[in-house]
């Protein structure tokens, strides 16, 4: 009987290669400086370029410079939620243990970025539209995304048994992913006050290259920064999990707890 591995088996084996926390911690420690330093340099260059050297818009004037902060945040708000949905698939289909921990860490960062996207959008809208907020399709769908992040954060911590929280939050992340195409296409499907996309995969950008380049640099810097923060939080999460498992294991528990009490780490004890 020849049982050749199926696609699902091969994909599961690939994903579980990094389910090993030790292997992940090594990979994370190696990746961290390669994410952090380029993120700092590119973000500072992009924002400095956008703030001081890029031209003002002929209609919007200098307030167009808010774009160099707002657009990267909007991109990361959607991408972060897409990452949550991928983690949900990895968790529900392959029971990948790091996918659950990654979902725990991505949620708060994604929520902060989405809140910043909404706030900077309001700060851009007030001088341009004359109002902080309108119930426009794009704005409302991003607000829904923010509530989905908050729901995910609350749900994943809502159960005494973490596995139940992971499972419930994964289902919410998958169901909420339907909001992503709504956000993307809202400016095409409905008449909105929000401007249509200036950059698309299929057409040439409708903005000047003098604005496009600082925007791309800033977006790349923000993206690497997002990844650096998530990797750092995930490394810390894996270590905290390890600490909890060491504290709850019976072997030499008394001496370990005494050592932790001395080092002020008692609050991590379960």
């Amino acid at each position: 009987m020849n049982a050749s591995p199926t696609f699902m088996d091969r994909a599961g084996a690939l994903f579980h290669r990094y389910a090993n926390p030790g292997r992940f911690l090594k990979l994370g420690a190696a990746l961290q400086p390669w994410l952090t330093w380029p993120a700092i340099v590119l973000t500072l260059c992009g924002l400095g370029w956008g703030l001081f050297f890029s031209p003002a818009d002929w209609q919007q004037g200098d307030s167009v410079r808010i774009m160099y902060v707002h657009v990267p945040c909007a991109w990361l708000a959607s991408s972060g939620y897409a990452a949550l949905a991928v983690c949900a698939v990895l968790s529900l289909v392959w029971r990948h243990p790091l996918a659950d921990l990654a979902a725990v860490e991505i949620g708060p960062v994604g929520a902060c970025v989405t809140a910043t996207c909404l706030a900077t959008g309001s700060l851009w809208g007030k001088p341009m539209w004359g109002t902080w907020w309108v119930w426009d399709a794009r704005l409302t769908s991003v607000l829904v995304l923010f509530f989905l992040y908050l729901g995910h954060i609350a749900l994943i911590r809502a159960f005494d048994d973490p596995q139940r929280g992971y499972r419930a939050a994964a289902i919410l992340a998958l169901a909420g992913a339907v909001d992503l195409p709504i956000i993307k296409f809202s400016v095409q499907w409905w008449n909105t006050l929000h401007q249509p996309d200036s950059i698309t995969l299929t057409g040439a950008p409708t903005m000047s290259h003098a604005m496009l380049w600082p925007l791309l640099v800033s977006t790349l810097g923000f993206t690497l920064g997002f990844a650096a923060i998530v990797v750092a939080r995930l490394r810390a999460g894996v270590m905290e999990h390890r600490i909890r498992s060491l504290l709850t294991s019976p072997r030499r528990g008394t001496s370990v707890n005494a050592t932790l009490a001395e080092s002020g780490a008692q609050e991590l004890a379960v």
């Binding site: 926390p21 994370g28 894996v238």
Partner: peptide
Amino acid sequence: DGQTETGRAGV
């Protein structure tokens, strides 16, 4: 920092 038993213990 990911180099000893952490790797063998599983999450």
